[in-house]
Nucleic acid binder design. Structure first.
Lengths: 338, 338
DNA sequence: TTGAAAGCGCTAACAA
DNA sequence: TTGTTAGCGCTTTCAA
């Protein structure tokens, strides 16, 4: 049998209350007893039972991270930031990676009711108004990352501004037929990136041509942000023949990777025949020499945890809404002045 | 306050024992009461408190996954398999991703003592004999993935065989100066891949030339399996000038990506000047058109969970040691007959 | 400063 | 078939 607080108390010749106080360094324990208890704990290799503690304290020291399973590198980078922050504050992390966006509510419900965690981080996934209300009403902390709800805390990047600078960069190189491959518009980052693209065109006085905008199919994954969809979208653009765009802003690096393949298969080269800019700056972008818009993924994860833990620990400050800046990373795929 | 089993019992006009039995579908509950209880549960939106349940049952329905933080895609793929299997069996997953291999023991200790989880999956990380014994003695289930210990359950790939087929493929194309870039030899997969490489040379009657073997520095990460180390290793090989190898087997795709960059920077081309084969078949390999040795990562994760849950649920079968087959995925980086 | 005892919300053994 | 009760291992009053 595992060693419990009773074993420690007996061995140290004190009551269990004292042991508990010693562990949780309460003020009113004499240095002498504290030392004795601590040494017995070391000797017996005692460690408090997490569940028992959770039950008594009504606090689990654990957070849930809910994330779409197919997110790949974006998620991996965010997760690194999350992990770093979580470990630093001695919390544990339960990962729910879900394969269909529709199941989001089911997991939110679980985390809300089961009380296995003290708060939740919802990444790249939409929350319904109904559940937003549940969280608000029960004062259960939640923060959204790469997602948005008007009543909840959220951390996103300036998607619109990122798309704007990407498109403007292409424009500044002399391109006039600039296309865009976007993710599914039910994703709000995808919507915002489209706005940025259109804004850049408008500023340059170039009319929007809807033949040049392809909204990705959902092939796999949540929202069309995947390689296959980028590949197919590019094929549609190439089918325009001579009227095809000379430059394309793609709403994610993964899709851009697919687009590059389609271009190469068509016997064309990047950036000579077609210039490309992606979005995210995941690791693959560097391998592919892809110009892209960098999202500060690590920072997003880190910041999200900081905010979540602050809420868990009783911070009552008003709603938190942070939009981080993006940054254009210029590599060879966008080419030079034409 | 959250709704408890007492609320349900009162509302349904039964004792809490009956509610408990209805929830956990015990046999001896009449259909009538069961239905009533269940409908009250739905009405009150009751969900059992995970901690209370864990405490009473001495079972948390949660497993820990301990993984080095820098593993990248390999881990991501394994994790997909893990997640799928875990969800299917209604377990939760606590993720501990650690930044220094030396901290492994610290986390193993935590999982072992704190009783927050029912078992642990240790991925790509070594366990000391001392801790292996702790787990064995306390009958606490653990399974190793991409790692090995002579007394514990483990799932690995046939690293040696994989390296052998890769090297033999290069040899079969006519190469005689075949080099290798390996990870740090304290990693057993790295050791095994080296053995496979040497075995292939021996079978072909080619003497081993130690100028052609580069053991990666640890630049970042656990074991030298990273891009930067591959890049530097390749530069060392290129420094051999005319005597440089004409083909190279690299012990991971990530390192191969770095090697490719070094080759391109030197103004050489792949596969014409130098043929390359990687290991893992992570997503990047496909983007880079890299011939590689595929590890069945998803299957490893899945299988590991299946085994772990079986142990948790009382399976007393003898030690489990599985070595999965690898598969050569031929793309363009290995070239054709010379 | 300390010990005793009452929960935390559940499961499971025991009675009925 | 059901209700009652004694834990599970801890924290936290309340007294002393």
């Amino acid at each position: 049998m595992a060693v419990t607080i009773y074993d420690v108390a007996r061995e140290a010749g004190v009551g269990i209350g004292t042991v508990s106080r010693a562990i949780n360094n309460h003020p009113h324990v004499s240095q002498k007893t504290r030392d004795r208890v601590l040494s017995v704990i070391k000797e017996l290799k005692y460690q408090p039972h997490a569940m028992a503690r959770g039950l008594a304290r009504k606090k689990t020291n654990t957070i849930a991270v809910i994330v779409p399973v197919f997110t790949g590198y974006f998620f991996l980078e965010v997760l690194k930031g999350v992990q770093q922050a979580v470990i630093q504050d001695h919390y544990d992390l339960i990962l729910y990676s879900i394969d269909q966006a529709e199941k989001t509510d089911q997991f939110l419900k679980k985390t809300l009711r089961e009380k296995r965690v003290d708060g939740v981080l919802l990444i790249s996934l939409k929350i319904t108004d109904q559940y937003a209300r549940y969280f608000l009403d029960s004062e259960f902390p939640i923060v959204l990352v790469d997602s948005y709800h008007q009543e909840l805390d959220s951390i996103t990047v300036q998607n619109q501004q990122g798309a704007l600078i990407a498109t403007e960069h292409l424009l500044s190189l002399g391109h006039r037929q600039v296309g865009m491959i976007d993710g599914q518009l039910k994703s709000s980052p995808a919507q915002d990136r489209l706005l940025g693209y259109k804004a850049a065109l408008a500023k340059a006085g170039i009319p929007f041509d809807d033949r040049y905008l392809i909204i990705s199919d959902i092939v796999t994954g949540q929202d069309g942000f995947n390689r296959e969809s980028g590949y197919r979208a590019m094929q549609r653009l190439l089918a325009l023949g001579d009227e095809r765009p000379t430059a394309i802003f793609v709403s994610s690096d993964i899709q851009a990777a697919g687009a590059l393949r389609a271009i190469h298969e068509a016997g064309l080269t990047v950036p000579e025949d077609i210039a490309i800019i992606g979005f995210d700056d995941v690791e693959i972008a560097e391998y592919l020499d892809l110009t892209t818009v960098r999202q500060p993924m690590y920072e997003m994860g880190q910041l999200a945890v900081k905010r979540l833990l602050a809420c868990i620990e009783g911070d009552k400050s008003p709603r938190f809404e942070k939009h981080l800046d993006t940054q254009l990373i210029v590599r060879s795929s966008s080419g030079v002045q034409i």
